[in-house]
Design a protein around this nucleic acid. Structure first.
Lengths: 147, 147
DNA sequence: TGCGAAGTTGACCGGAGCGGTCAACAATTG
DNA sequence: CAATTGTTGACCGCTCCGGTCAACTTCGCA
């Protein structure tokens, strides 16, 4: 019952962009260096974030990636679900038809409660919230928001 | 971000015991048949439940398994954690030392919030709650509490 | 026009864990 | 003793994760 590194690394990358990105493009190389993530693997993680419309990219010299919206408009749920799929403890919480007798399943109510609780936390937190906490917590060590 | 079948099957098995177990011992064979779980696999799942003190067992003819406490005293959290390990979205939510810079990590606060939300649901629900929901939902089809 | 810098994509790979099985064994009843 | 039932260790196929490599495309700049 754990998120994989995809969600964690991806969130780190977007938080990096929110803190260091400014208005322009940031090369993945820079993010990879600051976050100590393999460049190749980070490139892998960018694809779903771009597909989800959270990030834009430009190739070529001077290229890189950037957030498509302000950090205040990016909810963690979007980031996590882009990289990890729907947030839920079991499949049937999202899709009743995945279990042939879900209509009678009492545990499903519990799973649904749990899903709602999980989603609520991620939905109510934005990238900007993390940026502010970061600035409050680690003024001196801006690079140290390991996840 | 899903529970494996271990937690789901295990919960089904304990719910089965709560509904059909009565006072005596129930052979695993019976549970496996009602729940349509492979007997061998169910045996596998029993070991951690016994180790966690939720279930007792007796070998030999007339043997089987039984709950050690009343269903009202068994919280789903115990069942799930016995089979799936600590309920948390990331390791560092339980163990700060697993990440060398967890003291500065702002995401960790989010993970902790999330862990608390997840645990709260499982902690506040008992096997008896499921039994009552089951009796209300499917009087006619007592066997159909698939998860 | 060409070079280099950067993102994109497909293929691949080792390892871990899941879901499941089998066989051998231990304990209990009758 | 035989039958029944739980216990344990070994094993297996599969999927996914984490990660790498190479080839390709696209862009800026000289």
């Amino acid at each position: 019952m754990r998120f994989s590194t995809r969600g964690r690394y991806g969130l780190r990358a977007l938080l990096d962009l929110a803190l260091h990105g400014g208005n322009g493009l940031t090369p993945l190389k820079d993010i990879a260096r600051r976050q100590e993530i393999s460049l190749h693997y980070l490139q892998r993680l960018m694809a779903p974030l771009i597909a989800a419309g959270l990030v834009t990219s430009m190739r070529g010299a001077g290229g890189g990636v950037a957030l498509t919206r302000s950090p205040a408009e990016i909810r963690l749920r979007e980031v996590i679900e882009a990289l990890e799929g729907p947030v839920a403890p079991v499949e049937c919480a999202d899709d009743p038809s995945c279990c042939n007798r879900s209509a009678l399943c009492v545990s499903r109510e519990v799973w649904t409660e749990m899903k709602n609780a999980m989603v609520q936390v991620l939905q109510s937190t934005t990238l900007q919230d993390l940026v502010e906490r970061q600035r409050k917590t680690g003024r001196a060590e801006t690079d140290m928001y390991y996840i």
